[in-house]
């Protein structure tokens, strides 16, 4: 460099070609055994949910009164239920129900919770205090009781279940988002935005939201596990998804009385399905939160 002639500084110190932290995170995630196992379990059920028409060996709704409660055999690998329907086919088809209802419900809760959390966290003061006390009161009630109350009011249906789970999740997610917003609020880029007289919606959605997105993503996956569980519970209690849906919770509800008679298969296989899906989602969400929350 011909030094003296340079006007004040060399034009550029050079952009550091470091791999971005984000790419680093994805790589870490894809290598984590926890994530691989979790994603594998979830993937199985996702494939079932998408391709159930081809994967199910027989029609999950076709009743055969003469072949009721048959034990697992080469013809019906998981046996038949009390109406003679193929349990394997119903388990495969049931994946579709839960994998539509649970993510939808969680999504509703996440969107509403994020909006609420951004507002309370950003404005603080009285808005924050009053909304958060309301949330506290809401959270003091057990989730299932709350869900039941809403379902009784709305009348049981699939749409109602989605709405109810979404509503119940909203304050929980709002809390997480609010905490993330509070951590960001003191950052100097927020002051810089105020010094440009940015309006509140711009600051909340353009400046803040991208920075709290990792927390939201983690919260979504955690809640998804809970949502599956909650839906199954509500359905089992008879307030959720209604027959003749092949929903897993509904199948257990329909058959648990038969267990004492030795007819375990119509209960065990849907229960296993629920367990593997919930475990899969939780493993994946654990790995995601490890990768995204420093």
């Amino acid at each position: 460099m011909s030094a003296v002639a340079v006007p004040i500084e060399a034009p550029d110190e050079g952009v550091q070609q470091r791999k971005t932290a984000r790419r680093e995170r994805y790589r870490q995630l894809l290598r984590s055994p926890t994530f691989i196992v979790g994603a594998f379990l979830v993937a199985i059920w996702v494939i079932c949910a998408i391709g159930y028409t081809h994967l199910a060996p027989s029609d999950p709704f076709a009743t055969e009164p003469l072949r009721r409660l048959r034990a697992p055999s080469s013809q019906h690998l998981f046996g038949t239920d009390r109406l003679g329907r193929d349990v394997l086919s119903r388990v495969i088809t049931g994946a579709r129900v839960i994998l539509v209802v649970a993510p939808l419900a969680t999504l509703i809760g996440t969107v509403a919770g994020t909006a609420l959390g951004l507002v309370t966290g950003y404005f603080g003061g009285i808005v924050d205090d009053s909304l958060m006390r309301l949330v506290d009161a809401f959270l003091a009630l057990p989730l299932v009781i709350l869900g039941l109350l809403f379902l009784v009011a709305l009348g049981p249906s699939t749409i109602a279940v989605i709405l109810v789970i979404g509503i119940v999740f909203t304050p929980i997610i709002a809390r997480t988002v609010r905490a993330a917003v509070l951590a960001e609020r003191g950052q100097e880029y927020m002051q810089a935005a105020k010094l440009r007289q940015e309006r509140a919606p711009y600051i909340m959605f353009v400046e803040l939201l991208p920075n709290v997105l990792p927390s939201i993503l983690v919260e979504f996956t955690v809640r998804l596990g809970y949502a599956i569980f909650a839906i199954v519970t509500l359905t089992f209690l008879g307030f959720g998804i209604q027959p003749p849906s092949p929903d897993w919770g509904l199948s257990i509800f329909d058959h648990y009385a038969f267990i004492s008679g030795g007819f375990w298969w119509p209960v065990l296989f849907p229960a296993l399905a629920i367990a593997t899906l919930v475990v899969g989602v939780n493993l994946a969400s654990d790995a995601i939160s490890q990768a995204f929350e420093r």
Binding site: I8, E9, A10, P11, D12, E13, V15, Q16, Q17, R18, T20, A21
Partner: peptide, 15 residues
């Protein structure tokens, strides 16, 4: 005294 190419990067890529 910043190079124009810097405009397209993100803060984490800069010293």
């Amino acid at each position: 005294r910043l190079d124009r190419s810097v405009l397209d990067s993100r803060p984490e890529q800069l010293s």
